[in-house]
Design a binder for these strands. Sequence first.
DNA 1: ACGGAGATCTTCT
DNA 2: GAAGATCTCCGTT
Length: 204
Amino acid sequence: MKLPVSFYARDACLVAQDLLGKKLVSDVSGVKTAGLIVETEAYCAFHPDGADLACHASKNNGHPTPRTAVMFGPAGYSYVYLNYGIHWLFNVVTGNEGIAGAVLIRGLEPMIGEDVMAERRPRVDRTNWTNGPAKLTKALKIDKNQNKKNLCAPDSVIWIEDAPAISPKMISTGPRIGLGKKTPAPWFLIPWRYWITGHRFVSK
DNA sequence: ACGGAGATCTTCT
DNA sequence: GAAGATCTCCGTT
């Protein structure tokens, strides 16, 4: 079953941990692909500890912009944005309305539609299909068209399936990846990256 | 195996 | 005008 809004309407860090082991499903253009979530990162503009300056929603003095507005709305929506001009990155909106936050999906283990993924990831071997935030969007065909979608809607073509929780013993945490040195401390050091320890499809 | 650079465009200064 | 939540290709070891 699709994860309900109540799953997403919590602190981004909790959602990020609980998403490990769940199944991200894409049914774009009638072709189904899916993978097990093995790596996530939390971004939260207004955390009790302060404004997370690495979160896009903290830009513009914490006020919504055309790009970030979706993060200020209800939880359970997708936030898909273009990175480095060429890569689409997929997030789910978390928290309660007005508490702008999101979780970036960084790694998947391919589960469904592997033949399709192989076509969408030419000249790439299976271990590199989905072990990175921009790799998995290519494999699942997630781009601008999937932005600002309600993942919980009955007719959504992108959603996350419930699955048994991962044992906390198997979850590792560490600083988020790729934040420029321009992002001030402590935000590039905070351990808001979560992954299944030792899993093969965690990004490099 | 590893390191460096190019790709390409939105957002913010 | 520059930087950015990255990936791939091509060079050299």
